[in-house]
């Protein structure tokens, strides 16, 4: 295929990303940098300096970090087990295991989140069961643990898939070599599997951290509107206050954190690459 044809095939994607990614970003930037009377404004700085925003942002970052960490701690061992299983069961069954993660993603995330609301409610499934068993009630709905639980549940597949893929891609010879040189299973995981699946871990972290940082649906439904994350404030500015300028300004602040996250993961991946291809220079 020649070059002009390839370009032609990429055209729909170019139109899509221009229309739905690039232009909207510029519209947000435009609103963020201007005020209602059309002049330039310091809205972004004001948004960053507002104590309510700062508190919401800090809360968002803390919740997202906790959710990302929990996802990682669940996803990594699970990916190890699943890759071992699919190794034993053969290639054709790998699809089956992959389906297991993807299946929940086919249900609308809003519905899944509302389902959790019902499960966690004072009179929800869990508490009815605990009451029946004569145990103390679980009381986490409308509290931070419920929001973090929602984040973990919604975004866990995004952590599992890249990690599972990167573990599957590791050449079995490296694992055999480590064992041959005297490493037991645990030592092999920490010294060989983990470092070699680092690209998957980094991708997973970004894919869980960023949507957690920007969510407003999960905090709305499982936080009962009592806990404001930065996503909730942005949403309120646009819908309740109808203030596009303030909403865009706060979005820009949020964007800075997203860009920082992406830069960190890009850098660590590049460091990983250059380390592997580096010549005789000391680390």
């Amino acid at each position: 295929m020649n070059k002009s044809k390839t370009t032609l095939l990429a055209a729909p994607y170019a139109v899509w990303s221009a229309g739905f990614v690039v232009i909207p970003l510029f519209i947000i930037l435009f609103y963020g940098l201007t005020s209602e009377n059309g002049g330039l404004s310091t809205g972004i700085l004001q948004a960053a300096a507002d104590p309510i925003n700062q508190k919401a942002l800090a809360l968002s970052i803390v919740f997202s970090l906790i959710a990302t960490l929990i996802c990682l701690l669940i996803a990594y061992p699970l990916s190890l087990v699943l890759s071992a299983l699919s190794g034993k069961a053969g290639r054709e069954n790998t699809t089956f295991f992959t389906m297991l993660f993807i299946l929940p993603m086919w249900i609308n995330s809003l519905i899944r989140t509302i389902a959790w609301q019902n499960i966690l409610e004072r009179t929800g499934v869990i508490n009815r069961f605990l009451n029946f068993a004569g145990l103390p009630e679980l009381n986490i709905i409308n509290k931070p643990p419920a929001i973090i639980l929602g984040m973990v549940y919604d975004f866990l597949p995004f952590m599992i898939l890249p990690i599972y893929n990167s573990i599957l891609k590791i050449n079995k010879d490296y694992i055999d070599a480590a064992k041959d040189l005297g490493a037991n299973n645990i030592q092999t995981i920490f010294k060989v599997t983990l470092p070699l699946s680092l690209p998957g871990i980094i991708a997973g972290i970004t894919m869980v951290f960023v949507p957690s940082l920007t969510t407003f649906v999960i905090s709305d439904i499982l936080g009962g509107g009592k806990i404001l994350l930065v996503g909730n404030i942005v949403e309120q500015l646009f819908t309740l206050d109808n203030d596009w300028h303030a909403g865009s300004a706060l979005s820009c602040v949020l964007m800075v954190f997203i860009i920082i996250n992406i830069l960190i993961s890009e850098l660590s991946e590049r460091k990983d690459l250059s380390e592997n291809s580096k010549g005789g220079i000391e680390l």
């Binding site: 010879d173 490296y174 070599a177 060989v192 470092p195 070699l196």
Partner: peptide, 22 residues
């Protein structure tokens, strides 16, 4: 006996040097 407890070592066909280590 598992591989890590055996008093022998293997040189693999495709070398299998750990790429993340010097």
């Amino acid at each position: 006996l598992p591989p890590h407890s055996r008093e022998l070592n293997t040189v693999f066909q495709k070398y299998a040097l750990f790429p993340h280590m010097t």
